[in-house]
Every structure is written in C-alpha cells, then in structure tokens.
C-alpha cells in the first residue's frame, strides 16, 4: 500500500514535469525585457551632438507634448532603412524626434545626416552607449514614443510602415 502511494506520487510528479516541459517548448528562449508602459522618462544628463552642451533629460522633454526618441548610428544598417520613415514622420510636425547617436563618431554621423537628411529636433551624442542603457535599450535601432514625459510605446529594431502608421494614429 505504502509502495503504491509512493509510485502514484512519483508518477504524478513526473507527469507534472512532463507537462511543464511540454509547455516550455512553446515559449521562446530569447529574452526581451518587458515593456513597461507609462513609465516616466529616465532622468539622465548627456551631451548634445552639435552644441556639446550638457543637458538634463527634463530640459529636452516638455510636458504635454509628443516625442519620438530614436536610437541610431551611422554604422547600423537597419537605421539607414528606417531613416526615410523618420523623415516622413518629422514632416507631419506633430511630433518632435529626438535622436540618440549611439557609439558613433561625429564625422560619420554628420555625413550620414547630410546624405539622408536630418529628421531630428535634437540629437544626444551617446559616445559610450550609456544613455541608451538609461532607456533600457540594448541595440540599435530602438525607438520610444513619449507623451507627457511618459513612455507610451517601445519599438525594438527598425521602424516599419506599420509602426509609423500606429505612431501617427496615437499622436492624433
């Protein structure tokens, strides 16, 4: 009797393990951080691209306005891809695009912008990639939609038509 109970117990444990592994198979094993919505914009200080001024994040983002923060770099191929979409978005004038120039040289970044146009209202020069970390980013490109100093949405990887449409819808 005692033996049978033990057997039953062990079998049920293994069955549970089986089910968990079975379910686990369907989950992806690649981790992407949770997107925390309505989180306050991180507070940081960083250098501006053109003026070399050191600014606080509060000075960049006004309350009650829409911003798109875009992390980009001249050496990143997908950034080149999404650039025209950013230009397009900038022309709507409803949103200010803030660029974070990630681990770049000024020379390369400047020629990138003169070639493809400059959609950015302001550019933060993030030579060491530290500002990007403040934003919880881990690669280029990444974009954040911001309203009222709160993050509404986060886009990992290059923006596409779909996401631009979404942004336009949200800022209306």
């Amino acid at each position: 009797m005692k033996n049978k109970l033990l057997l039953l117990f062990i079998i049920s444990i293994f069955t549970i393990i089986f089910i968990i592994f079975y379910k686990g198979l369907k989950n992806t094993n690649v981790y992407t951080p949770d997107i925390k919505i309505n989180k306050e914009v991180p507070s940081f200080t960083s250098e501006l691209f053109y003026s070399n001024e050191v600014v606080k994040s509060k000075e960049i983002f006004d309350l009650d306005k829409f911003y798109l923060l875009n992390i980009w770099s001249s050496w990143c191929a997908p950034c080149r891809q999404e650039h025209s979409l950013l230009m397009d978005l900038m022309e709507t004038k409803k949103i200010k695009i803030i660029g974070v120039n990630y681990k770049d040289t000024k020379k390369n970044a400047e020629s990138f912008l003169s070639e493809l146009g400059n959609p950015f209202y302001q550019i933060i020069f993030d030579k060491e990639g530290v500002t990007a970390i403040e934003w919880g980013a881990y690669g280029v490109p990444e974009s954040f939609l911001i309203y009222d100093r709160k993050i509404l949405k986060k886009y990992i990887g290059p923006l596409d038509e779909q996401s631009i449409k979404e942004i336009k819808f949200l800022i209306k």
């Binding site: 089986f18 079975y22 686990g24 198979l25 094993n29």
Partner: peptide, 29 residues
C-alpha cells in the same frame, strides 16, 4: 529542444524537442 538558451546552440526545432521529451518520459515510466 532550444528550451534553454546557452552559448552553444544547436539548430532548434520544437518537433525534435517534443520527440525527445516523449521518448525520455516513456523511458522514465
């Protein structure tokens, strides 16, 4: 099966994972 991520990755395929899983538990039972 690719259920864990590690430095050493083999090409992952859920079907393979399922097969080994069933086989493994058959052996256990």
């Amino acid at each position: 099966s690719g259920i864990l991520n590690s430095v050493h990755t083999f090409a992952n395929d859920p079907e393979r994972g399922l097969f080994i899983l069933i086989f493994l538990f058959s052996l256990i039972f």
